[in-house]
Structures are given as structure tokens and as C-alpha cells.
Amino acid sequence: MAEKRITTPLTDSLIRSLKSGDRVLITGTIYTGRDAAHKRLTDLLKAGRQLPVDLRGQIIYYVGPAPAKPGQAIGSAGPTTSYRMDSYTPALLEYGLKGMVGKGSRNKEAREAMVKYGAVYFAAVGGAGALIAKSIKKARIVAYEDLGAEAIHEFTVEDFPCIVVNDVYGNDLYEEGVKQYQRA
């Protein structure tokens, strides 16, 4: 399996080079967001207002981290289940978001929006929060502090490990992987 080192923000040519099944190490800045933050962001987009963070070309990581212990940049920080963000995804991709990191499969609308607007969906290993936190070097809250663990954090990551699930060509690693190992 190919392993690619990529940096943020994501350019269109980089996005086109990513294929479903690629193992990827992300370095740069990524933003966190889950249920409550997605609702607020898409409400702003609907109202035609500016977002508190410029997410164009960026990656949103679906995570609600555990609090940092003294000496840690962030507590355990593995992905949350992505389908809960599906209904908000097309609007964010239309706006210019280019990548999402989570776990679990996406619905048809979210997958079609990735093809249409040129964005990718990566999976990180769900439940490996202590291990993943090692690749997060800095963390700060940049919006919606009142949401606690659900606030939008800016993470500075180095070699953050994940795998491409949905690419811009309409491939889906979950569907293909399961087909390969299914026994009637």
C-alpha cells in the first residue's frame, strides 16, 4: 500500500493524486468540528455570513478530544463517527472545504458532493485516541469555546496517520474492502 506524506492546505492537484486506499500522513494545520459546530457553521453559510475560521482548502477532523493533562498538547483525540455530519457536508464542500477526517461510511449525498466539489474523506483509526494524540503537537481553540470538547480547535499535526476512503473519483474503500472479504 502506498504511503503518502501530505501537507495542508490541500491543493486541487494534490487532491486529484489521492486514491481510495492510500495511507496518508498529514502535516500542517487541521481544524476540529463535530455535530454542534457543524450546525453553527452551516447556519452561517445559509445566512450568507462569514465563518469564524477560513476553512477553504482546509481539513476538518471530526473529533471531540479529551482534556489535556499537564504537559500534553491535547488529550486522547481519535475520530468520531462521520455519518452524523453527512447532512452538513455538501454545504461545507460547496463553500470550499477540501478534506474531512473521521470514521465510518458517508451517505450518498456526502459522497456525491466530494466528487462534485473535489474533496476527500480520510478515516483515522477509531478508538486509537491515545496513539493519535501523539501526532498532534499543538492545539488551541479558535471558535465556539462555549461548546467545550465540541469547540473548533486548530491542531498543528505532524505525520497524522489516516487512510483515504472516498476520493474524487467516486471510489469508496469501505464498500470495496468489505466486498473483498465477504463470504456468502
Binding site: G64, G75, G129
Partner: peptide, 13 residues
């Protein structure tokens, strides 16, 4: 890591 560093194995505690 979780056991040695006394941190939660998953952020969803």
C-alpha cells in the same frame, strides 16, 4: 500508551 501514560484509550470516555 493509555496504560503507561494514564490517559484514556479513547477520547469518548
Amino acid at each position: 500508551i493509555a496504560a503507561e501514560e494514564r490517559v484514556p484509550m479513547c477520547q469518548d470516555t
